[in-house]
Amino acid sequence: MKKLSCYSGSFWLGLGATLLTAQLAMASGQSLLDKIKGATEPVDNTKIESAYTLTAKTVQAEETYQGGTFRVLARKDKITRYRCSVCHTDKKVLVKNGALYTHSDIAINHGKGQNKLECIQCHDEKNRDVLSDAAGTKIDFDHSYKLCGQCHFRQKRDWLGGAHGKRETYWAGERVIRNCTSCHNPHSPAFKTKMPETYSLPLDD
């Protein structure tokens, strides 16, 4: 009797071990992470057929990401009073137009305390139709990411790679992503607080 139970015990142990190893082998063969790691060949996303009807205007970015060139949403056509040089001339300004011409509607809330930015730290002092960075390099409004990136370099690195910001409408096709200023107001870049759209029930409800 004792011998029998000993035999059966080792039998069950053996069976258990076999099943366990079989399961482990199956899991490692089918692992999602292995599958992802194994996919190293670049995929040509532009071959994915779909109706590409992006109504937004885009421009070719002047930088590249891991997949090559990409496009960003254009900005100049969104700026209400572009071109700036229409007003910014040598002509004298009438007092009654003063409030409009001095951009009194813009409040700068960018940078904290002592480091609060001033207009000309981003806008070019001479040519009002462009921006300029700390080194004095002129930057087009459509490529403002080059300017933002001089301070926010971590965000820019993530934005180039795809962990910050977002793609416009399509995950496939030629990469079109939003410009920094598509989402952030450059004069007050922090997101505003607002009421939530709806509410959620608890998980187990």
Binding site: I36, K166, C183
Partner: peptide, 20 residues
């Protein structure tokens, strides 16, 4: 509106999701 949601092809090594 915040870009917190990243979606893409896991088999494309250049995709945003793979970068994350």
């Amino acid at each position: 509106p915040t870009g917190s949601r990243i979606f893409g092809n896991l088999l494309d090594p250049d995709s945003e999701i793979r970068f994350v």
